[in-house]
Design a protein around this nucleic acid. Structure first.
Lengths: 355, 355
DNA sequence: CTGAAAGCGCTTACAG
DNA sequence: CTGAAAGCGCTTACAG
């Protein structure tokens, strides 16, 4: 770490910032007029306004959003709480929020909670001090804790893919059950009958729902649910490896494996290949999320796409709608999209298609 | 999109927030005393302070950071400008900044510029209005444009992995040349003599520097530089595929290929495999960045790790140091770390190790 | 230990 | 069209 303090520039005190009063003095008007002119009020005479604008530019005047906020009691600011911005899903959501916020001249505060409920509450408190106009919380496990804050702060809170967003919060969510049912139906249509599920192991609601979709799809057919075809990962590749090993050790292994998410599928894929199996020749594999690299797996992964960025956009749009017109509850539920790639195929020894 | 406005709760006007004056009235003291008590000033009598604290809690009082900022002319806020938060490298940097900011009670504004210089300037202007105490800019191509802003705003700006961070800005950067030289030296030590480079094609400084390291490593030996062993990608897998195809079409193809980044290497890997070549049996492959999935490539990728999160932390720490003591220039340069995995091996037909 | 006063930089009725 | 005045919610010398 090489710190250099050589060049002489940029030393000493900063010259004090020009305020509205400085501009007023220079333009020979009251500061009220300057305020109006700079905000483009039609009340100000054209020539006066131009003069003021010119002087402001010369002096590098830049309005203070903090002073303005104090009087308008509106900060044009929102807070976004995420578990961790390192998660590609989360990053994409934030990008969506940002898109809309930017279009509408809102600035966004970002805070990582590291999935620590305490820190999450502290962060929200900070946002309250900053007087944000609204809050978006992504993938929190403590959705329910936000209800009291919501009423205390008097500021809209939108929950995105949260656990248990019950009660009177606003939410944007993927329809996990429907999406995973779509996927499993597709596997069934390919002719698979021994279909396994590698889930999560933390009791996440999303896991419960995806598992629910798996069961729902089976229940539509005469394929009976078999508990030993359910394994547990941890949402990461290692978990997928463990789960897959367990499944392949079965007396009669599955011909298709549906994974809780793409990272899990990545691990499963590695294990399958490590054991000399071909995908999808010997076993079909599918994930959930459609992360950016899913199309670059070998083979490219069949999965369900969440409209991630769109979800971020919708969360921000919900906030904006709420600013304009407070409604008791906004619940937006989105469909996932089945993305068929090359990791799935009909089973080798074709069972007769169900029914 | 299913919007529900059912439940009756949470309607009507928000009750006005308690201010310092409300607490003062209830506690029978002046609002000055409340201010002192709540900030933990030792000037306030113990019992008075406790009373005030209790009342504040009861009323759900929450200090207004905006009012405070107005008088202290310090917002405890920084702005972070990124090209896009969807880039895993960028996300990790932001996580590092966040870590430190949080420890030190700073809030961070995040803004995507989408690599659009205009938008980048607009965003910085917004930050100026918000009176952020400092700014971090990541991976911008317009580093130089920040010099004038810096002096105008009178606020420290730290450039992270920027293009041409010359002049009097502060910066945190990876030493690209050194890192890529380490990697290519390693390939040479394995016995490779026909080593190719798949670069970027946008004239990024990082590409120029990595290429420089490649050349430097060759120049240390008797291996002469061969222009036809240089191909161009675009930093994404597609680019790696194109580059690799070109290299493999050569009369005498390379035995090792060093790629501008991991994404490029991913594409190269796919092409090699598609042409029936084994990695590293027929050709060794290496990348740069050590993205999270690099260890899950098949085979796991040899690469250079950038201390990404650490770079974010350092950027924020530089800002903090600058708040405490304005220095003319901070330039921090970090070393990359060679990560050897299974995508590299000695060449098949072992040339004699150089020298 | 406590209070009265000034002021941070704006916006916005209210009067002209 | 323009100005004087009040006020947003705090902090902090200054006096006691």
């Amino acid at each position: 770490m090489n710190i250099d303090r050589s060049s002489p520039e940029n030393t000493g005190v900063t010259p004090k910032r020009a305020s509205i009063k400085d501009v007023a003095r220079l333009a020979n008007v009251s500061h009220s007029t300057v305020s109006r002119a700079l905000r483009g009020s039609p009340l100000v005479k054209r020539r006066t306004a131009e003069l003021i604008q010119r002087i402001a530019d010369e002096r590098g005047y830049c309005v203070s959003a903090v002073a303005r906020s104090l009087v308008t009691s509106k900060t044009n600011t929102i807070g976004v709480v995420v578990t961790t911005i390192s998660d590609p899903f989360v990053a994409e959501v934030v990008a969506g929020i940002e898109d809309v916020a930017n279009e509408r001249e809102y600035s966004v505060f970002l805070a990582n909670s590291n999935a620590d409920p305490d820190r999450e509450m502290r962060v929200v408190r900070q946002f309250e001090e900053r007087r944000v106009d609204g809050i978006v919380v992504t993938s929190s496990r403590v959705g329910a804790l936000y209800m009291p804050m919501l009423t205390r702060m008097g500021v809209p809170i939108v929950l995105l893919n949260n656990q248990h967003p019950t009660g009177f919060a606003h939410s944007v969510m993927i329809d996990n059950l429907d999406a995973s049912r779509q996927l499993v139906r597709y596997l069934i249509e390919l002719g698979h009958r021994r279909i396994a599920y590698i889930g999560d192991r933390f009791g996440r609601q999303s896991d419960t729902e995806r598992f629910g979709g798996y069961r729902a799809a089976l229940d539509e057919t005469d394929i009976s649910f078999q508990p030993d075809l359910v394994a547990h990962g941890n949402g990461k590749p290692e978990g997928g490896e463990d789960g897959m090993r367990a499944l392949l050790a079965l007396g009669e292994p599955p011909t298709a494996v549906f994974c809780y998410n793409d990272m899990t599928a990545l691990g499963a894929l590695r294990t399958a290949r490590g054991m000399g199996l071909s995908v999808p020749g010997d076993v079909s594999l599918a994930g959930f999320d459609d992360i950016q690299l899913a199309g670059y797996f070998d083979p490219p992964l069949t999965t369900v796409r969440q409209p991630t960025r769109q979800m971020g956009r919708l969360a921000m749009e919900t906030l904006l709608a709420l600013f304009a017109d407070p409604a008791p509850e906004h619940n937006i539920r989105l469909r996932g999209e089945l993305i068929v790639r090359q990791s799935t195929a009909p089973p080798k020894v074709a069972h007769l298609t169900a029914r």
